[in-house]
């Protein structure tokens, strides 16, 4: 039985109603998310703006809100991130390469795979407790930059492993076969081909992990970071040979989110301005890292299209 043209048109109109309806609902959902975030950020920026002076970056915390700054906090954050990256990147990338390219596919690697993904969902305070026992007491690193960096490295390790594996998997099998067919060993195939071709994705994963780590507060408080610190760690660079030293690794420290937490918990109104200003700086750091990730991905992807 054939439908008349008028019937078909009515049918299409009815179907299209839902099409438009979803488009509108979807747009509202998107706007709710974006507008809330934007207004929060705008409010933070407006509140913190008067404190965002050069002196804010070069001053230690102080009992006087107007004189207090984030020098020890941002230096601490940077140094902790250095330790985190140095630990998480080689461990995570190597583990991912092993799992993806070397490990036999059996029930044991399947269990490991599932659990690596699950580890990404473990609450960060649990990592803090683990680190308090392992790094601070058993290994005796104390409440130091080293302990904090390693703690955050553990925290982001699953993120790095998962991102690396996904990037490795994106390299087509035909490229692997091309390398093998020329007589490459597995390691030559990985190091000459798969790893360089997936570097954009790996880089993005690392930076996403680090930008998560830089905002973490709970595990750092658990291992005992100071909340008020009026001196800098030893400098990693020294004027005499060998120009670098490792003393800073063992120094006490604070980081940006802890400094913020400290200020927000003060009763004085003026410290709230400092907290807002520090929040703006922390957000800017995170956004800058993400921007680097996007740029790297764009630049490397331009050369590689499967």
């Amino acid at each position: 039985m054939q439908q008349s043209v008028a019937e078909i048109r009515r049918l299409i109109a009815r179907h299209k109603f839902w099409d438009y309806a979803f488009a509108i609902v979807g747009m509202i959902c998107l706007m709710v998310g974006i507008l809330v975030l934007l207004s929060l950020f705008a409010d933070l920026a407006r509140t913190g703006a008067p404190r965002l002076t050069p002196a804010f970056f070069t001053s230690f915390p102080s009992r006087m809100a107007e004189e207090a700054g984030i020098l020890s906090a941002w230096v601490g954050s940077v140094l902790v991130m250095v330790v985190t990256a140095c630990a998480a990147v080689p461990l995570g990338v190597a583990a991912a390469i092993y799992l993806e390219e070397y490990a036999p596919k059996n029930w044991m690697t399947a269990i490991i795979e599932i659990n690596v993904t699950n580890l990404a969902g473990v609450p960060s305070i649990v990592y803090g407790l683990l680190a308090l026992g392992l790094f601070v007491y058993i290994l005796g690193f104390g409440q130091s930059i080293l302990s904090a960096g390693l703690t955050l490295a553990l925290l982001i390790l699953p993120v790095v492993i998962v991102a690396t594996r996904e990037s490795l998997r994106a390299v087509p099998g035909s490229i692997r076969e091309a390398a093998y067919a020329l007589g490459a060993t597995r390691w030559q195939m990985v190091s000459d081909h798969v790893l360089p071709y997936s570097s954009a994705g790996i880089m993005t994963g690392i930076i996403m992990g680090l930008s998560r780590a830089i905002g973490e507060t709970a595990p750092i408080i658990t291992i005992g970071a100071l909340t008020f610190i009026a001196f800098l760690p030893n400098s990693p660079i020294s004027p005499e040979f060998p120009f670098v030293n490792a003393k800073w690794l063992m120094d006490p420290f604070t980081v940006m989110p802890i400094q913020m937490f400290n200020w927000t918990s003060r009763p004085e109104e003026e410290f709230q301005l400092n907290a807002a200003a520090a929040g703006v700086v922390l957000l800017a750091m995170t956004l800058a890292m993400n921007a680097v990730a996007i740029y790297l991905r764009y630049r490397i992807r331009k050369k590689i299209k499967w």
């Binding site: 035909s174 490229i175 076969e177 091309a178 390398a179 067919a181 007589g183 081909h193 050369k303 590689i304």
Partner: peptide
């Protein structure tokens, strides 16, 4: 594989 080389179905140059 060092003695016998191969050309595949779809061109698969390295990037």
């Amino acid at each position: 594989r060092m003695r016998i080389s191969m050309v595949f179905q779809k061109p698969n140059p390295f990037p």
